[in-house]
Simulated scan of single mutants.
Amino acid sequence: MAIIKRTAGRPTREQAQHIDDIILTGAREAFCCRGIEGTSMEEIALSVGVSKHTIYRRYAGKMALLDAVVNRDLERLSRAVLDVASDPDPLERLHLAARRFFFFCVEPESIRFMAFLTSEAVFSDELRQRFATWDRIISDPLISCMRDAQDAGELRTDETPLSLFNLLTDMLDGPSRRMQFALPDPFGGLTPDAFFEHRWSVFLKVATAG
């Protein structure tokens, strides 16, 4: 864990962003290790080398801090998905966006964090409600790609973009669920790349127009 070195004076914008990143990384690690109830703001502050006041000045409490941790991950995913927007073929944009979505979801740190969130949500109505908001943020870029491919006549239009999104993501979800429980061979004997391309080809057989 990186420790913030204190300097005199008001931090620059870059320094403030660095402090935010260090705090969120420390909070993410603490939440994964000890859960929300088992983690204190004091512990997070001590682990990253800032004062508790520095954290509270940015985040009102642990749920606000958790929101910020999740939103940082979602922003990273959104940037990766939206980075394919320059491809002129809507179906290829969807292919590239879905690929980046899949590989984000099977990153070890993503698996670990999702396992923490899922276990916490079992006992928290508030967290389950937040999941609905986070799910929309995750879904919107890919649903937009689905809609563009439909408008271009490359995907069937008798299904909604949301329905097609659910079809594709349900097909891609197996490895991440198996990895959460450390089950063997999460990709069914394939490489992650081959697994994605196989599922994509099956999706096209079902979802392409005509």
Rank of each mutant, 00 (worst) to 15 (best):
A115H: 14
A115L: 12
F116D: 01
L117D: 04
L117S: 03
S119L: 15
E120G: 09
E120K: 11
E120V: 11
E120S: 12
A121H: 05
A121Q: 07
A121P: 03
F123Y: 10
F123D: 07
F123H: 13
D125L: 15
Q129V: 03
F131W: 11
F131T: 02
F131A: 08
T133V: 12
T133H: 06
W134N: 00
W134C: 05
W134Y: 13
R136L: 13
I137R: 09
I137H: 07
D140Q: 10
D140S: 09
P141L: 04
I143M: 09
I143G: 00
C145I: 01
C145K: 06
M146P: 09
M146H: 12
D148L: 15
D148N: 13
A149N: 06
Q150C: 10
A152R: 10
A152F: 08
G153S: 10
G153F: 12
G153M: 08
E154W: 11
L155T: 13
R156K: 11
T157W: 06
D158R: 08
P161D: 01
L162C: 07
L162I: 14
S163L: 11
S163A: 15
S163N: 06
L164G: 01
F165T: 00
L167V: 03
L167E: 02
L167P: 00
L168T: 01
L168M: 12
D170Y: 07
M171H: 12
G174I: 02
G174Q: 04
P175H: 05
S176V: 01
S176G: 03
S176W: 02
S176I: 00
S176L: 03
R178F: 07
R178A: 05
M179P: 05
M179R: 08
M179C: 05
Q180A: 04
Q180N: 00
A182T: 06
A182G: 07
